[in-house]
Write a protein that binds this DNA or RNA. Structure first.
Length: 397
RNA sequence: GGGCGUGUGGCUGAGCAGCAAAGGCAACAGACUGUAAAUCUGUCGGGGUUUCCCCUUCGUAGGUGCAAGUCCUACCGCGCCCA
């Protein structure tokens, strides 16, 4: 074990942390120097990881760096059973093979944060599939319906007459039983997992007479200030290309700057304070963007993404790289050209873009806004078609 | 088992038998700027010979109308109440 650094521990237990149960206990354990078993659970859905998902991962990394044992639990059991959550989107039941594939996807993304050579990976079907009905009844006898209903999600759905499937209702128990099987010292998760993690705490105490502490991370909000999620398209994926990532951070609402510095970066308070002295929100945000890109793509890419962003958006110049469209004839109607070069998804959309003044043709440095959607364009090699402020295509003949 | 209700575009949510379907969110474009922030404006199913025409869409399948998201029947999903 590395040397115990009390201040470091304090920082780990507070930065980006919503709550620790029980804080004093956990602190004592950490200071004692014993190697702790810490676990984090994921669903093997194979989705894109965003930098909000990364918040608890960074927290795990902190503990990993302190020398503790990190266990990553793959929730393959529920994935294979099929969770009916969500009204009409009956989730596809995953096969073993898909679970493996999805884990690969996950690992690839999470490796940007965690060192997987030091992570122990376990699958919960190993123990959950062995429980029989009697076991499950026994398990459920530890809680009342009223207790389960205190979970905010259930509570909300009851109030709004939304369905709660019995299967979902049992979820906390399944997840809670993971704690019994793993018998850990600490579980880490997003704040939305608080309820489930606490059920696990209770069960582990009952079955193993061992306390599991629970640490929940604050949830990172999306770029628009709402919950970060795919449906709002307000997320920043850890595998987003550097320039894209930079741009997305720049689209974060100004009011969210502090929030992002705390949760999405690992800069110290002093460093953050220093940056915030530097001037207007635009520049502060650029530093934030640069830092975040650096965390996932490294210093060099981060520099490049900033330069590129300034070039295209601040100085309104052409990007250094853009997709190429190989023309098969020498003149196109602008609407066809936009669709075929993938700048517009349909001809109607292309027409609208032109009518809205969003299409510009650049030839030999001469810019010309296209005003008529029926216009025919005589293509020349090296000509550039620009849509909006950040979509470009270079013509090749 | 019975009664009542509900199912609409990426999401949310209006909809009187004559609508590609109000509003909100998101998205996209324009103006402005400090940025892909904020604000304001416009667009927002697909195709065309493009001031007009055609096609597809309102849980599914039929039916009644010149005409159906809108009425009827059956089925499916979901909710509430009663038992």
């Amino acid at each position: 074990m590395p040397k115990i650094d009390q201040q470091k521990i304090q920082e780990i237990l507070s930065r980006g942390v919503e709550d620790v149960i029980v804080g004093k206990e956990l602190e004592k354990k950490l200071v004692s120097g014993q190697k702790l078993k810490i676990y984090f659970g994921i669903d093997p859905t194979g989705t894109k990881l965003h930098i909000g998902h990364a918040v608890p991962l960074w927290k795990l990394k902190d503990f990993q760096d302190l020398g503790h044992e990190i266990i990553l639990l793959i929730g393959d059991f529920t994935a294979k059973i099929g969770d009916p959550t969500g009204r009409d989107s009956a989730r596809v039941v995953l096969t073993d093979k898909q679970v493996k594939e999805n884990f690969k996807t996950y690992k690839r993304q999470a490796s940007k944060v965690l060192d997987f050579s030091k992570v122990k990976v376990v699958y919960n079907s190993k123990w959950l599939s062995r429980l029989n009905f009697a076991d499950i009844l026994k398990l459920s006898a530890n809680f009342t319906v009223q207790q389960m209903l205190t979970r905010d999600m259930f509570d909300r759905r009851m109030k709004t007459d939304q369905p709660i499937s019995l299967q979902e209702f049992m979820y906390p128990l399944m997840q809670g039983y993971d704690s019994v099987a793993l018998n850990v010292d600490l579980e880490i998760g997003g704040n939305d997992q608080m309820f489930n993690m606490l059920v696990g705490r209770d069960l582990q105490k009952i079955y193993n007479n061992k306390d599991k502490d629970v640490l929940t991370c604050k949830l990172l909000l999306g770029t628009d200030g709402r919950k970060m999620s795919k449906t709002f398209d307000n997320f920043i994926a850890v595998e987003d290309a550097p320039e894209n990532m930079f741009g997305k951070v720049m689209s974060v609402k100004d009011e969210l700057l502090d929030h992002y510095f705390e949760l999405a970066t690992r800069l110290s308070e002093a460093e953050i304070a220093e940056i915030k002295k530097s001037g207007n929100p635009r520049d502060i945000k650029a530093k934030l963007a640069k830092e975040i890109v650096k965390m996932y793509h490294g210093e060099k890419e981060s520099e490049k993404s900033e330069a590129e962003f300034n070039k295209v958006h601040r100085d309104k110049e052409l990007p250094s790289e853009m997709p190429v469209f190989e023309a098969i004839k020498s003149n196109y109607f602008i609407s066809d050209l936009l669709v075929e070069s993938k700048l517009a998804p349909s001809k109607n959309e292309a027409k609208r873009l032109v009518e809205g003044g969003g299409v510009t043709v650049i030839n030999k440095g001469q810019e010309e806004r296209v005003a008529d959607w029926k216009k025919e364009i005589n293509l020349e090699d090296g000509m550039i078609i620009k849509v909006g402020s950040r979509k470009f295509v270079k013509i090749k003949i």
